[in-house]
Simulated scan of single mutants.
Amino acid sequence: MKTRTPLTKTASDIRRRLLFMVGVIVILGVPAYLEFKLRRPVGEGPAGPQIAMEPFQSVWTQRRVHLLGVGDSVTRGLGAKSNLHSYFERLKQNPKDEWPDMQGKHLSAVLPNLTATNVAVSGSTSIDHQRVIETEIEPFEEDVFGLVVMTTGGNDLIHSYGRRPPEEGAMYGATLEKAQPWIESFERRLGGMLQSISDRFSAGCVIFLGDIYDPTDGVGDAPSIFLPDWPDGLAIHAEYNRVIRRVANQFGHVHVVPLHETFLGHGSHCRQFWRSTYDWDDPTYWFYTNIEDPNDRGYDAIRRVFLQAIVDQRQAFVSLSDREPDLSLGINF
């Protein structure tokens, strides 16, 4: 009868240890991979910053104010539970199922002579927005002050999802060098759009322009959102946001709404607690199934940051109560 040599026994022990280690890796690694790479819970309840009640306890002005929505599917509301849950509609009026902490915090409560129009179009680019502004927005009556909310440029970046060679207005996959002329064109186009919108309100207006969020939470790994790799994607995205801030700074009455900052930690890496963007209070996913638009909770957050930006500039509306509009020169804040 043969007995195992020490060498044979050692090899067998090594195999057992390797199998044990593989088992441990599988048992621990698969759940970790699912949790930190694939699981993206949307959560429940309110999303986004708290908004104080005090600014909504008195009327800002009795003058006529028109709320105008311009831009893409974010301002249109694609991905919201219903049209009444879009950020545009929730700015105008609380829906019946409004969260308790936001009840009474809407523009109709402080602007009793508010009217509204939303000309945003899902899937549209900044090139489309320029056309819409020029052809579909007529000048408003001389006593109407404008309150404009706008999102533009996001579809310029993400279209056509790498399925076609990059071009202006659909630059996904482009190098920064190739995109540079398109970025410069966007800067000129955005300045023209903001001026054209302003010109349609002879009584003056205030414009709130959202910057562009990032569904990869600043990591830039496009495959995490099921898109082809795009090495220069983050750099081009950053350039677009720099353009938005730079152009807005040329107008005293245009204010940037920080959607990019607000959504960090709520994209494809929302469960990765070791990242600086991790939101310990609400580590949930705020994007719709199409990746590029918000889900219902995302729209709640957008409504809140737009509303806070408007509250911060409410003196522009309060001052309307103290004087008549200068119809010859216009009023720009």
Rank of each mutant, 00 (worst) to 15 (best):
G298A: 09
S58G: 12
G71P: 00
P258G: 05
R303M: 13
H129M: 13
D214Y: 03
E184T: 10
S126V: 01
V257S: 03
D293A: 13
H255R: 05
G218E: 07
V74Q: 09
P258Y: 04
S185E: 14
S122D: 14
D221V: 11
R163G: 07
L19N: 10
G48R: 08
F88C: 03
G69Q: 01
L18R: 13
E35V: 11
G169V: 07
A235E: 15
D293E: 12
N155H: 06
G252M: 08
D72H: 05
D281K: 11
L67E: 02
L68D: 01
R189K: 09
V256K: 10
S126E: 03
H253P: 00
L34R: 12
C270R: 02
A11S: 09
T8W: 08
P215Y: 03
V219R: 04
F251L: 07
S160T: 15
I244H: 02
S58I: 13
D199W: 06
L68Q: 02
F287L: 10
N290A: 11
Y299K: 04
D156N: 10
A235R: 15
E187T: 05
P100W: 06
Q272G: 02
R90P: 03
V121M: 10
D326F: 06
H266M: 01
R188V: 12
E239H: 07
D232G: 06
T289S: 12
H85M: 09
A32C: 10
Q50W: 05
T262C: 04
H269Y: 14
K2C: 03
Q93E: 15
I51V: 15
W286K: 00
K96R: 13
F145V: 09
P95I: 09
E177I: 08
T10K: 10
L84C: 08
S82H: 12
H159W: 13
R39P: 00
G265W: 02
L264G: 00
F226N: 11
T117Y: 05
G218R: 01
L91N: 09
L107D: 09
P31Y: 04
D279E: 04
P112T: 07
N290H: 09
V148G: 01
G204V: 10
I127N: 01
D300A: 10
T262H: 05
G79P: 02
F140L: 14
D13N: 15
A238E: 09
L7D: 07
H129K: 03
E261A: 12
V30S: 01
V206P: 00
S124F: 10
V74R: 09
A316P: 00
P283R: 08
V121E: 11
E134S: 09
A309M: 03
I225T: 05
Y285E: 02
